[in-house]
């Protein structure tokens, strides 16, 4: 019932939401990813032992950190954009520009973090 659509799935996938739609998808994906990551991380730390360190070793791996930093940083910066636009609705007229500003803030911080993670992983 909840999945009943007014448009077909293929039409839905072809929806051209562009920049703002992409931020919506990434925000939701990042939020879900974080919820799963943090739940497992807390439970792993609680259980401890071999099972706990099995999961926490995955989390300390540089490849995983690159993914989770993307989720967390994007969710944080996109969330700040949403909060600002929601609390000052007049700014909503500049939604597309706000999304560009958001990427301009996100890319340098994330790029620098990824650079540091990789150089550390390579023994830098």
């Amino acid at each position: 019932m909840g999945l009943k659509r007014n448009v077909s799935l293929t039409t839905g996938l072809k929806y051209k939401g562009q920049g703002p739609m992409l931020t919506f998808v990434l925000h939701r994906l990042g939020g879900l990813g974080m919820a799963i990551f943090i739940t497992v991380h807390i439970l792993a730390s609680f259980v401890g032992g071999e099972i706990g360190s099995f999961f926490n070793n995955i989390y300390e791996h540089w490849a995983f950190q690159i993914v989770i930093f993307f989720f967390v940083l994007f969710h944080a910066i996109n969330g700040l954009r949403i909060t600002i636009l929601d609390l000052w609705p007049k700014l909503l007229e500049h939604l597309r520009e706000a999304v560009w500003v958001e990427w301009a803030v996100f890319i340098p911080i994330y790029g620098l973090a990824v650079f540091v993670i990789i150089t550390t992983a390579l023994g830098g």
Binding site: G2, L3, R28, G31, L32, A35, I38
Partner: peptide, 23 residues
């Protein structure tokens, strides 16, 4: 704060797919 924020976010996502009052 983060748990309350995150769990409410999960409920918001679930509400997009589960629409019956009982669900």
């Amino acid at each position: 704060v983060a748990t309350a924020h995150g769990v409410h976010g999960l409920v918001v996502i679930a509400d997009d797919y589960i629409v019956s009052p009982r669900g």
